[in-house]
């Protein structure tokens, strides 16, 4: 097993659970309240939306790194998983959102 340095016990699992729960709660509260100050537009969308996407990526990182244990795998396995996803998904997202805007203006 390659996980000799992975955390022991179950305390770390609950720590990450509380963290994920806290982030979700923040997202839901922001989604219901929608503070006026965060609705100013930035980079083609609102600060609030960027905040949502940022928090989502943090949540995703914690799930992948700790729950899916990827942080403790060897580098060759980690990068063969990270790289395709990190390169292809932002690329696809960029292309489609860019085109969607152009078609809207058209």
């Amino acid at each position: 097993m390659s996980d000799h340095d992975s955390p022991q016990g179950t305390a770390w699992i609950w720590k990450i659970f509380w963290l994920l729960l806290a982030i979700t709660t923040i997202e839901v509260v922001l989604g219901i309240v929608k503070p006026e100050i965060l609705l100013t537009s930035l980079a083609g969308t609102s600060i609030l939306n960027l905040l949502f996407i940022g928090l989502t990526l943090v949540k995703a990182a914690y799930i992948v790194q700790y729950f899916m244990h990827l942080k403790y795998e060897v580098d060759s396995l980690r990068y063969s998983i990270y790289l395709p996803v990190i390169i292809l998904i932002p690329y696809l997202t960029f292309i489609l959102i860019f085109e969607g805007q152009n078609i809207f203006e058209f």
Binding site: V85, T93, I97, G100
Partner: peptide, 18 residues
């Protein structure tokens, strides 16, 4: 599977922007 779902969600974003 992640790429499949990102295909769906980006397609959603595309149509929504339109």
């Amino acid at each position: 599977d992640a790429l499949t779902f990102s295909g769906f969600l980006t397609a959603y974003a595309f149509v929504r922007f339109r």
